[in-house]
């Protein structure tokens, strides 16, 4: 564990609390892509299958994994059951099969072993790297977003960005080589946030509304 990874994980945690706060205070999931949230459930469940093996890393690791799985499923419940009327599927139109299929193929080509843990792990890494796309696509379509929603996406972007210095730090301080799958997918994932991040910094953090240029 190092400073960047801890800060990244805390940022990831914060993003989930921001999302829960947004849904509960506005009593609405307007502006949130249900498809992206479904993808995160798939990501967490396929990545954390090692929970079933009881190959224990640390209490921190186990608690965080259980929290990510539990909270992501709870968010689906909020969107589909509790606040269902506020969810508008007509603007959440990204075709996620175009993400799931290629990620499945990639995980069969690039993995750390043909086992029931490694292939889903690899799949989840590739899928996480593109899971935000339905959300960004929705933002693109509506052209604007509630400020709290942009804080949610920004916290997710910060989490991904912080994992990059974490890997650089680990490269120089540990002797494990490079987790090429995680690093390449992680860089792709971080790059997807750049456009959003630019508008977030130049508009939202200056006190303006998040609006895309026409």
């Amino acid at each position: 564990m190092n400073f960047f990874r801890l800060l990244g994980d805390l940022s990831h945690l914060a993003s989930i609390f921001i999302l829960l706060h947004k849904i509960q205070t506005t009593r609405s999931c307007r502006g949130i892509s249900f498809k992206t949230q479904v993808l995160y459930v798939v990501v967490f469940v396929t990545r954390y299958l090692d929970l079933l093996t009881f190959q224990f890393h640390s209490i921190y690791n186990t608690v965080m994994k259980l929290f990510f799985i539990g909270s992501s499923i709870y968010i689906l419940y909020l969107m589909r059951v509790r606040f269902r009327p506020t969810n508008d599927p007509s603007i959440d139109t990204f075709r996620i099969e175009y993400l799931l299929g290629p990620c499945a193929v990639l995980s069969l080509i690039f993995n750390y072993g043909y086992t029931w843990l490694e292939i889903p792990w690899s799949f989840s890494i590739f899928l996480e790297s593109v899971a935000i796309l339905p959300q960004l696509f929705m933002l693109q379509r509506t052209g604007e977003a509630e400020t709290i929603t942009t804080h949610y996406i920004a916290a997710l972007g910060a989490y991904r960005a912080l994992y990059i210095p974490n890997w650089i730090f680990r490269y120089f301080t540990e002797d494990n080589g490079v987790d090429a799958i995680a690093v390449v997918a992680g860089i792709v994932q971080t790059a997807l946030y750049v456009d959003f991040g630019w508008i977030y910094f130049t508009k939202v953090l200056q006190g303006q509304k998040f609006e895309l240029p026409a």
Partner: peptide, 10 residues
């Protein structure tokens, strides 16, 4: 690909 992996990251 060689097994990296502690998979100790979240």
């Amino acid at each position: 690909v060689q097994a990296f992996a502690a998979h100790d990251e979240l």
